[in-house]
Every structure is written in C-alpha cells, then in structure tokens.
C-alpha cells in the first residue's frame, strides 16, 4: 500500500514536471521546425512538414547575417569579461582573505555594496561616453566586469580561506611573495572555484539583456539577446524563425548545463549562501 502510494506520488510529480517545464521547451522546438503557415497557429500540434534547414538558413541570413555577427560579439563579450573577472577577482579575493585591516573592511563593504545596489544607468553611460567607450564592445565588457565583480570576489575569497596559510609561508621562505606567490603557487590551486566562476559568469554574461540594451544599442553590433529582442518586433508573422532564433540562443547554455550541471549548481548555491 505504501509502495503504491509512493509510486503514485512519483507519477504525479513526473506529470506535473512534464506539463510545467517540458511543455514550454517542446513548444519552442516544435515551433522552430514548423513552416511559416503552421507556426502562425502557435499551437502544440506535430509539425506537418519539417523545414529545419530552411528555417535555420533563413534565420542566419536574416538582416544581412546579423545573428552570426551577434554570436561573434557575444562570444567576444563573454570571453573578454570572464577572463578579466577571473584574473582580477581572484587577485582581489586572495588579498581580501589574507590581509585584514581597515583596507580589508572597506573592500568588504564595497563588495557587499556591489551585490545590493542597482547600477545607475544613465550616469554610467555618461562615464563611458567620456571615456569614448559608449556603444563599444570594450565598454560593455568593462560594464559586465564591474557588475559581476562582487559575486566573483566573494566566491574566490571563500575558496582562498580553505587554502592553508602554511603554503604561503613555505613559498615566502623560498622568496616568493606578491605576484609570484599568487600566480605560481596560489592561483593554480584555485582551479575548482575558477571553473565555477567561469561557468556561472559566462552563462550570466551570455544571457544578459539589460546591459547590452543600454550600453551597446543598435543592430550593427548587437549581442544575441538583442537580436532576439529585435526579431520579436520584426518577425511578428514568422514565428518559426523567431523560435528558431530562440532555440539557437538556448544551445550554448544547454551545452553548459549538460556537461557542467553539478559545477554550476554548486557555484550558484555557494554564491547564494556566502552572499
């Protein structure tokens, strides 16, 4: 009887999960592979024909290959921002954990501030404009670095706490301090948390919509999220192409999820509990 009830609960959980979570994703994929006429009905029917390749090519070619350029831009943005975040935040997190004092207190305060306070948009544009970085990819990279900095510093700081100080001291006896101590001895040991930071921040930067919208407007050098947003108004009739775009943009996070699910979950929960 109990076993029966258990498996009943199991089936119920499965059905609810399928309806609530799987149906929307199936809907995306099904609509993406339908022809234009059928996709306009926006129902859950099985595709009558399967113009997968045609839809794919049409989306890629749309607006003079804007999607391809957007993928390049998003890749540059993600790689650039994540690389800077890893190097700069690991350095900061290391010193922040190791060296207490008034400076450390101030930095800790600034880190928490960065976690809580919403960035002031137009003044940021004003600063970037002054530096000649507004509407440029390097400018957006700096913005992403600044806005994801607190979270990354916290993760690094927490991990450095688990690296024994004896190691630093041993290295110092060998005359290793400062940069050599950090980059030759400590940084290699931070590999697990570095992977976590790389995964979580790259998903966040790749999926970011608000900052590209403000700091990199225009179709010319759009990021993938912006193409989606722009297609939304343009393709009000070609739902299959809009959803093909959605599917294509969902593939990179999907790959990250398939290969690194555990790492990502670990990083996000650690970040949450430390933060």
């Amino acid at each position: 009887m109990r076993a029966l009830r258990r498996s009943g609960a199991e089936v119920a959980a499965f059905v609810v999960a399928v309806v609530v979570f799987i149906v929307p994703f199936s809907f995306m994929v099904l609509t993406a592979v339908k022809d234009e006429l059928q996709s306009a009905e926006l129902d859950f029917a099985w595709p009558a024909s399967w113009p997968i390749v045609e839809n794919f090519v049409a989306v890629i070619e749309a607006r003079d290959y804007v999607l391809l350029r957007a993928f390049v831009n998003s890749t540059v943005l993600t790689v650039g921002a994540v690389a800077l975040l890893v190097v700069f935040c690991s350095m900061a997190g290391f010193v922040l954990q190791r060296r207490k004092g008034r400076m450390g207190t101030t930095v800790n305060f600034l880190v928490l501030t960065g976690l809580i306070i919403p960035p002031a948009i137009v003044p940021t544009i004003w600063v970037l404009q002054g530096l000649g970085l507004f509407k440029t990819l390097p400018g957006l990279i700096l913005v992403e670095v600044a806005f994801h900095m607190s979270y990354s510093v916290l993760l690094f700081r927490a991990f450095v706490a688990a690296v024994p100080r004896e190691l630093d001291e041993a290295a110092m006896i060998d005359g290793c301090t400062g940069f050599r101590l950090f980059f030759q001895v400590i940084f290699p040991l931070l590999r697990p948390v570095t992977i976590t930071v790389v995964l979580t921040t790259s998903v966040a930067v790749f999926n970011d919509f608000v900052n590209p919208l403000y700091f990199l407007p225009g179709d010319e050098n759009a990021t993938v999220q912006l193409t989606l947003y722009n297609f939304q108004s343009q393709y009000s009739t070609q739902w299959n192409l809009l959803f093909m775009d959605i599917v294509l943009i969902t593939i990179p996070p999907l790959l990250a999820f398939v290969f690194f699910n555990r790492k990502i979950v670990a990083g996000m929960t650690a970040g949450a509990i430390k933060g």
Binding site: M91, V95, R99, A120, P123, V127, V145, A146, F147, M172
Partner: peptide
C-alpha cells in the same frame, strides 16, 4: 606578501564603472 596592488585592477574598474556613476547619480 599580500600587496594592496592586487586590488588595483578590479578597484579601478569598479570605481570608474560602478562607484563614480552611483555617486554622480
């Protein structure tokens, strides 16, 4: 052995892109 210079790169970006705009706001 733990020089404050390590704060510098992150600090500059944070100050210029986040702190200054927040205060100027």
């Amino acid at each position: 052995p733990y020089p404050y210079v390590f704060y510098l790169p992150a600090g500059i970006i944070y100050t210029v892109v986040f702190l200054v705009p927040t205060i100027m706001a």
